[in-house]
């Protein structure tokens, strides 16, 4: 028995020496990506697809795990940020994580602590229950203006990107809806199908199958350009309501991030792999099938996009009264 212990001690010593020699070129070991949203969701699937391709580029396996909880993904984000800035831990994030600073007392960082790699996102679309008389976005706005608060609008909970889009849409169009919050996009779409709410705002990706099957009638996308899914063109709300251009678009941005203080050569390696992965057939096909607008931005470009989202989302959340930290105190400019 004592021999066993001696063996363990000896092995530990050998290990100590091995570590000294373990300085190798990145990546020498598996990479772990911590997705802060649940498995099966939009961020999770996109990150898993891009990681699958990047693993081929980098030549090491990339493990994707989900660490959810807290508000605005705070638990997973704090977990990913607490790991060494060596590039072996990445964080799978989305635009909602830009509000974490405002939502959570013990996370006082802004998007600047990360270097972002953006896969893309799907534009938001306003849809109604198909048996309602509203054929265009103007019909809907006119009806809402005629009887303010009579039309019930479903979307994810306060501060979610879809809720913020709904708010901006109300602001730009002058319509007033009765906002009914749901625990995510899928339940809100269900509610619109059952007629519990009349209108729903979620992303095209999330609604695509329901739109194609005629379960929801899309009225307009909340981005400047029209969007086509399987031959059906959804016009842009901007066409008839020009005032929207002042408050929108606020677009989904799904991707991953590495700690900004990671070594430059590591970031460069990941950037190369990311660029190659974005060009791969798998990712391109994924984007097409899932109705994403692929981005591929990283570096300064991505940081700028995220700062913009941070401004609009953080201030929206703060004005809803659900934040804890004033965005001004975090140095986040007003949109």
């Amino acid at each position: 028995m004592k021999r066993v212990f001696a063996l363990v001690v000896a092995l530990a010593l050998v290990a100590g020496f091995a570590f000294a020699a373990a300085e190798q070129e990145f990546p020498a070991r598996d990479i772990t990506t911590i997705v802060v949203w649940g498995a099966g969701g939009g961020t999770d699937t996109s990150v898993r697809v891009i990681m699958g391709e990047m693993a081929n580029e980098l030549g090491v396996p990339i493990n994707v795990i989900n660490v959810t909880g807290g508000s605005a993904g705070s638990v997973g984000m704090a977990e990913a940020y607490s790991r060494d800035a060596d590039g072996y831990t990445l964080a799978g994030l989305s635009e909602s994580n830009t509000t974490t600073g405002v939502m959570v007392a013990d996370w006082d960082n802004t998007v600047d602590v990360w270097d972002w790699f953006l896969v893309g996102g799907s534009p938001d679309v306003v849809s109604v229950t198909p048996d309602l008389p509203y054929e265009t976005i103007d019909d809907l706005v006119a009806a809402a203006q005629a009887a303010p608060g009579s039309i019930k609008a479903g979307a994810g909970g306060a501060g979610s990107i879809h809720h913020v889009n709904l708010l901006a849409f109300e602001q730009g169009s002058g319509a007033d809806f009765d906002f009914i919050p749901y625990d995510g996009s899928a339940p809100s779409q269900n509610a619109a199908m059952t007629g519990e709410v009349q209108l729903v705002v979620t992303s095209v990706a999330e609604q695509a199958e329901l739109i194609r099957a005629g379960r929801l009638r899309p009225l307009a996308v909340l981005v400047p350009d029209a969007f086509t899914i399987s031959g059906q063109t959804i016009p842009s709300a901007f066409d008839t309501i020009p005032a929207l251009a002042e408050v929108l678009p606020i677009q989904q941005a799904i991707g991953f991030a590495i700690r900004a203080d990671a070594p430059e050569e590591v970031k460069a390696k990941i950037g190369e792999a990311f660029e190659a992965a974005m060009q791969s057939d798998t990712v391109q096909q994924f984007g097409e099938e899932r109705f994403y607008v692929l981005s591929g931005a990283y570096g300064d470009e991505a940081k700028e996009i995220m700062q913009g989202l941070q401004s609009s989302l953080s201030w929206a959340v703060w004005e809803q009264g659900i934040g804890v930290d004033d965005p001004a105190s975090l140095g986040i400019p007003r949109p």
Binding site: L11, A15, A18, T32, N63
Partner: peptide
């Protein structure tokens, strides 16, 4: 199962070296 462990100290790292 690729679950990161709560604290990966000496022995876990040793296992990692053997694994790699």
């Amino acid at each position: 199962l690729l679950v990161p462990l709560p604290h990966e100290g000496g022995i876990v790292q040793l296992m990692q070296i053997i694994y790699y």
